[in-house]
Amino acid sequence: MDGFIHQIVSGIASGGIYASVALALVMIYQATHHVNFAQGEMAMFSTYIALTLIQAGVPYWAAFCITVPVSFVIGALIQRVVMEPLAKAPVLASVGVFIGLLLTFNSVAGWIFTYTLKPFPSPFGEGKPLFGGFVSRHELGSTAVTLVVLLSIWAFFRFTKLGLAMRAAAYNPVSSRLVGVPVNKMLALGWGLAASIGAIAGMMVAPVIFLDPNMMAGVLLYAFAGALLGGITNPLGAVVGGFIVGIIENLGGAYVVGTELKLTTALFIIVVVLTVKPAGLFGKTLVSRV
């Protein structure tokens, strides 16, 4: 029983990270109907920036506060320079560019920072597990950070004028442009936000799985699975889906398929959701007019 509770708790902790990346994916999907394959690699790159700062002697939270805006700028720049000209291009072109970005980030990171596994510090200390040994400090801390991020994103979209404009631009670009919303700027902002969320997720997951250029491949896959499970058209659904996938992954890994097939679990979830209920648990069923 104790083991079971422990698996659930670590499932929630990793689920929070999948939820963040899933949210980043959904934000870009809503605005452009593209799934950003490079989201994970961008997060990995940001995490390396944070590590470089920390190794240069910058305190953890200061490095954190520098990395997030830097990632924001990188994300927004990519949208402006690379994605915007291809907004109307066929699927193959966007997939090609995303894969290109993925490969570039991956190898540039390998080039600059080498492919060796690097430990990444946790800001929450190493100390004893809390609450009767069920929760490690890092699990608790990273879940808290994730929740704060998710809540503030929600508040941003719900209560600010800018958030409203971004939602409008994603929902109906043509009408938004007519009422004066700078749609392209909103898209760049969305990319920046997505990159920042990814950066935070990367910094939270790196102490657990160690930092290397390929660390986000698995995380990205689980985030995809979470986003699809919750409904890729629904940010809240994607977050819930991320948590569910985290729990399924941990329980499945512990009791059903073993750790060797963990990634296959993600593939399985993706295929099942897409074939059985393509809209996800909370998503809108898309009806296209012909």
Binding site: L103, T104, N106, S107, W111
Partner: peptide, 16 residues
Amino acid sequence: KAAPGAVYGLILIAFM
């Protein structure tokens, strides 16, 4: 060692 990936990536984007 990392260059092939970067070449692939940049060439993909350039071709698109």
